[in-house]
Design a protein around this nucleic acid. Structure first.
Length: 220
DNA sequence: CCTCGGATTCGCT
DNA sequence: GCGAATCCGAGGC
């Protein structure tokens, strides 16, 4: 069994080992190739409140229920794409969010799509930046990664030692802060900076007067 | 049908 | 460090 077949087997199993195994793997689209440095594991229905699949199958998350090795992409905040690698057996929802990578080929193409990047290390540092650098969008939905399609996933050139992997809580999720399912290559500069979830304050509408902010009494 | 709010990023302070 | 930008899936009525 070659390395690619081994990767396929790993992706078909439980999501946490699959996530760890994706560290160091290479992801290519067009001219751009990157080495994955940071991932997050998301499980399926009921088991994982942070997962897009936790309320069951919908048209949006359908790919998470499909066979391993395919792409689940979603659009968020009205402007960003994020890429997941589907894992686990067909019919069970699970996926690994690819949060960051080191661009190792096609820098010029990546830079042309990421003109605001201050340096090469920022090209794919963060899930939306990573998609932008690779040119990934809705058209990637459901595509198979281990074949010769437009997006390709390949095993690490060198395995990442267990000792080099750090784990912690997932970024941006409202709950499950005790679940350390974010994995990254320790010390790698392309890993995104961890930010505790900060709820976005909806701008107060005039006269709405709801919420704790109205408790402020200005009596002077 | 309508409202809520997000697995984020960027730019300004 | 904080707020804005900007779309659509999901869920409540």
């Amino acid at each position: 069994m070659d390395d690619l077949a081994r990767l396929a087997v790993l992706l078909g199993g439980p999501v946490v080992p699959a996530a760890r195994g994706l560290l160091g793997a290479r992801l290519s689209a067009g001219e751009v190739t990157l080495r994955i440095t940071e991932v997050e594991a998301y499980a399926g229905t009921a088991q994982d409140p942070a997962s897009h699949a936790h309320r069951g199958r919908t048209p949006r998350n359908a790919a998470m229920f499909g066979p391993a090795g395919h792409v689940y992409v979603y659009f968020t905040y009205g402007m960003h794409w994020a890429l997941n690698v589907v894992t686990g057996p067909d019919g069970e929802a699970a996926a690994v969010l690819v949060r960051a990578g080191e661009v190792v080929a096609g820098h010029a193409h990546a830079r042309s799509r990421r003109q605001t990047a201050r340096s090469d290390r920022d090209l794919a540092r963060g899930p939306a930046r990573l998609c932008s650098a690779l040119g990934v969008d809705r058209s990637a939905y459901g595509q198979y990664l281990l074949g010769d399609g437009p997006i390709r996933l390949r095993p690490p050139l060198e395995p990442v030692p267990e000792a080099a992997v750090s784990a912690g809580p997932r970024v941006g999720v409202t709950g499950a802060h005790d679940v350390p399912w974010r994995f990254w290559i320790a010390g790698d500069p392309t890993v995104s900076t961890y930010r505790r979830h900060t709820p976005r304050r909806r701008s107060a509408r005039p006269g709405a007067g709801t919420g704790p902010s109205s408790e402020v009494a200005r009596d002077s």
